[in-house]
């Protein structure tokens, strides 16, 4: 990566559908990915609900955008942090989340997991390493 590459972290804290934040964040991530920065996503608080499995919006007449998270690997967005404490407070485990993968260019395109469950403490360190944090 070049010297001009900055580390961007998108911090997602809202549930999907109830408000527009989740969708707006995802769109900004996809647009931002075109600029080839070092992008990471963090899901904290109700944000963890954005990437739960089995969403089916047929009954509420709203587009189900959860399949789009699976395309993030194609956009070289492969650092997806989920806060452990937020999952636990909601009775969720990593098995309740989408199976997000990416192909590692530096490892013969091996398929790897994008999601990393981290503690609040670890997330604090990750936030500390960023150049820019965008909060949704």
């Amino acid at each position: 990566m070049s010297d001009t590459t900055k580390k961007f972290l998108y911090l997602n804290r809202k549930a999907p559908y109830g408000t527009i934040y989740a969708l707006e964040s995802l769109e900004v991530v996809l647009i931002g990915a075109a600029f080839e920065q070092d992008v990471a996503l963090a899901f904290v608080d109700d944000g963890v609900y954005q990437i739960t499995k089995g969403q089916d919006t047929a009954g509420i007449g709203v587009k189900n955008f959860s399949p789009t998270y699976s395309a993030l690997g194609d956009y070289d967005v492969n650092k997806i942090y989920v806060e452990k404490e937020s999952l636990e407070a909601r009775g969720l485990t990593v098995d309740d989340l989408l199976d997000l993968k990416y192909e590692d260019e530096d490892d013969d395109w091996a398929e790897k997991d994008s999601i990393r469950v981290v503690t609040a403490q670890e997330l604090a360190d990750i936030m500390d390493e960023q150049d820019v944090i965008l909060s949704f």
Partner: peptide
Amino acid sequence: EYYNEYQIAPAVRVLTKA
């Protein structure tokens, strides 16, 4: 097919790679 699976049209960089 890509749209069907991911609900987005891919950016050109992504399209080229895919």
